[in-house]
Nucleic acid binder design. Structure first.
Lengths: 217, 217
DNA sequence: ATTAAAATTTAGACAAATCTAAAAATAATT
DNA sequence: AATTATTTTTAGATTTGTCTAAATTTTAAT
C-alpha cells in the first residue's frame, strides 16, 4: 500500500462521519488538496483493491478492510504524537505534520513496542483516542463547549481543530487537556461565551467554543 | 530531496571508500538493486542538482553538499537503530530495514531531540559511529579480526556485515560489541582462526573474521 | 593495432500520481 | 419540464523513477 493510498483511506475515514451516505469526490479533493479528477482516478484504484466501495457520482465508502487499515494508520499517527510530546519535548502544536510522516512507517513490532514504551496511552496530546492493537477505539462522551450550559463546570478533554494557530491560542489562554472551565454567560446574539478558568474570566467566540471538547465534572 | 535521491546519495557515500576515483555505474546499480541505465539517469539528475559530480563513463563523486547530506541521512539511520535497540527492545539484527525507512523522516528537531533523549550516543548497535549534529564523525582505530595476531587479546568494536544472518551467527556464539577475543591460532592454508572467548574455543573462517572489527586491549 | 568483451549511455516505453480542459451526469431553478 | 448550475468523470498530458533493447565508449586480448 503506497503512501498516497494510505492518505486517501485515512481521509475517507475522517470524512465518513460527516458524509454518511458516501464521501463526495469534491470533499475528498478538498481534504487531499488535489483536484477532483485525481480523486476519481485514485478512488477507482482503491475500489479495485477492495479498500473501498465506489459508485460513480455517488461517492465512496470504506470497506471493512479499508476501515481497519485506516484505523491502524490513525493508531500510528496518534502514538507518534504522544511519543513526540511525552518523550521528545515537543509541544502539542508541533507534532501533527511530523506524525503525518511517521504514520507511514510500516512495522507492527515498532508500533506495538512504542505503545508499550509509552505505557499504552489511551489518548494523544490533543485528546483523541488511540486505537489499541486490535483496532478497538475507546469512545468517550464528550460535547463541544459551545453546547455547554450556564453555571455548569466542565473539563477540557480534547480539541476539534489541531492546527498550530488554534493550539497556540489555547496555550496563550492557559487551556489544555484537563483544564477546568466554568461557563458564566452565553451571549444570545452570537453565542459568544464568558467562561472562568482559575478565577480568570475570558470571552470566547463560537468559532472557538465549537472547537473545544469538554465533559461535565 | 526525494526518497530515491537520498538513497542514491547514501549509496555513493558508502561506495566512495572502495572506489576512490569515481563510483562506477554498475557498482551503484548493484547496491541499489536496479539497472545501470536507471543509475545513469539518476546520477545525471543529482549532478544537475549539485549533489554530486559526474563525468560520463568515469563515475560519480559526491560534492560537499552531497556528502554532508549523506552524512545526515547516516546520522538519522544510526540514531534510529540505537533508539530501537536501546528503548524498544529490538535485537541488533532486526533494526536495519526499519531504520532504512525511518532515516527519511525530515525534521531536524526530531533528530536532535532523539539524540538528546538517547544521551548523545557515539556508536550505533553495530558499533558504527554516529555523526554529531554538525556532521562530525568520531573515528576509532579498528582493524579486521582477520588482521589479528596470535596470542594477542582483542575486543570487538563493530561489524562490517550487518545482515541478520551474520548477526545471528554472532549471537549464537556469544559475540557482541565489547566481547573479548583471544587469538589462539591461524591456519595458514585458509586463514581460519581459532579464538577463545570466556574459555570457550571457537574456529572461524576468514569470511567471518574479516567481518568483525576489533581493537587491541 | 585490430578485434572481442565489458561497461556505460541513449532511446523509447511504462506505471503511479498528478494536472488541465472538455464531456457527461446530477441537482437546482425558473 | 426545460434550462442553468454544479458536480463528477473522461481524455490526454506531465513528472518521477524505473525498465528493455540498442548504440556507444572504454578496456582487455589476441
Amino acid at each position: 500500500m503506497t503512501l498516497a493510498e494510505e492518505n486517501y483511506i485515512k481521509a475517507v475515514y475522517h470524512l465518513e462521519s460527516k458524509y454518511e451516505n458516501g464521501v463526495p469526490t469534491n470533499a475528498l479533493a478538498d481534504k487531499m488538496k488535489t483536484k477532483a479528477s485525481s480523486v476519481t482516478d485514485m478512488v477507482k484504484k482503491l475500489a479495485e483493491k477492495g479498500l473501498l466501495v465506489y459508485k460513480p457520482y455517488q461517492g465512496a465508502f470504506l470497506s471493512e478492510k479499508g476501515r481497519s487499515h485506516a484505523i491502524m494508520v490513525i493508531r500510528r499517527h496518534r502514538l507518534w504524537e504522544q511519543f513526540l510530546v511525552e518523550k521528545l519535548n515537543f509541544n502539542w502544536d508541533e507534532v501533527h505534520d511530523l506524525a503525518e510522516q511517521l504514520e507511514h512507517i510500516e512495522s507492527d513490532k515498532l508500533i506495538n513496542e512504542l505503545d508499550a514504551f509509552l505505557d499504552f496511552p489511551t489518548h494523544d496530546p490533543h485528546g483523541d483516542p488511540i486505537p489499541d492493537r486490535h483496532g478497538q477505539i475507546q469512545r468517550t462522551d464528550k460535547i463541544m463547549l459551545s453546547q455547554g450550559v450556564c453555571n455548569i463546570g466542565y473539563q477540557c478533554v480534547g480539541v476539534n481543530d489541531s492546527t498550530p494557530n488554534f493550539l497556540k491560542y489555547l496555550d496563550k489562554n492557559c487551556i489544555g487537556i484537563g483544564t477546568k472551565i466554568l461557563v458564566k454567560d452565553i451571549e444570545e446574539f452570537d453565542q459568544s461565551m464568558t467562561i472562568k478558568i482559575n478565577d480568570k474570566t475570558l470571552v470566547m467566540s463560537k468559532a472557538i467554543t465549537s472547537n473545544i471538547y469538554v465533559k461535565k465534572i
